[in-house]
Design a protein around this nucleic acid. Structure first.
Ligand SMILES: [Mn+2]
Ligand SMILES: [Mn+2]
Ligand SMILES: [Zn+2]
Ligand SMILES: [Zn+2]
Lengths: 146, 146
DNA sequence: GTTGCAATTGATAATGAGAATCATTATAGT
DNA sequence: ACTATAATGATTCTCATTATCAATTGCAAC
């Protein structure tokens, strides 16, 4: 099976940390690569069946996080959801449906992103806070729920 | 002891839900009113000592949430933090220190807030999502940590 | 392609934030 | 004050996540 570009990038990063890219980890990366938003360990486990045991999913996500391959999201109650880090996917934001709870990725166009960054910078200047990142979450009703 | 304006608003809202504003709950509301950012049950408990038992703090925060008196925040790992709902405090955003983890309220001026709302509306239109709220979180180094 | 060995696995136990229980107590309206 | 009902708080329960550890696997050197 041919190695995808995503896998190649992840493998390189992991090698720098002396972390092995095993079969189960490859499977996880593929699943995260296909996802349309951040996924919890339970989400991934139900998608992958017993291909990768839940305890291994938790451990691998944690290893990936330490290596900067995935980013955790805490924006919903009781569960942590993970997605590929932005150096792999590009910077983006999230829509959260207040009705059904789905979290969906959105990329916004450069004009809006530039405006947003200007707002963030100005706020940082105003209050002596040094921004390194920002997250705009929009809560509302998704297409299915409106 | 004279009843503060905040307490009066909360009492009215609770009465509409047939929820009593007891001594412990009054104490909690006061603590939340003084806070400079969202606080966890444990935060509140350590601030209030055994004045209000931890299990009561959890239950009261949950009751307050149902009545729309407080809002939960999930943006940090492993704990839920609560703050007074925006109809009591005014709309605002949050700074999260990537170093020490402190979460701090910020009100941004009307010009920036208007720009932000315009961005949110435009995104909603683009992707057929109906926004009801938004949250801009700025991650960076707080004054103490830079 | 075998070998050596550190990294990984996966079943299971431990942890910890938060929710549920329930007998007792406090609250508010009459 | 009396009563009906809501709240309390010590305790137990739940469930997402982490830690453990003996068995297995990946990888690089030979
Ligand atoms: Mn995302
Ligand atoms: Mn706040
Ligand atoms: Zn929805
Ligand atoms: Zn800080």
């Amino acid at each position: 099976m041919a190695q995808t570009n995503l896998e190649r990038q992840v493998e390189t990063r992991l090698r720098e940390h002396e972390i092995r890219l095993t079969e189960g980890r490859r499977t996880l990366i593929q699943a995260l690569g296909k996802a349309d938003g951040p996924k919890s360990a339970a989400d991934l486990h139900s998608r992958l069946g017993d291909q990768v045991p839940l305890s291994s999913i938790y451990r691998s996500l944690s290893v990936f996080e330490d290596a900067g391959v995935v980013s955790p999201h805490y924006s919903t109650k009781g569960v942590t959801r993970y997605e590929l880090a932005e150096w792999l996917t590009g910077h983006h934001h999230h829509l959260v449906c207040v009705n059904c709870g789905v979290v969906e990725d959105i990329e916004i166009d450069d004009r809006l992103e530039t405006q947003l960054e200007a707002i963030v910078e100005e706020i940082g200047r105003d209050v002596s806070f040094a921004p390194v990142d920002h997250a705009l979450e929009i809560d509302g009703n998704c297409r299915q729920c409106q």
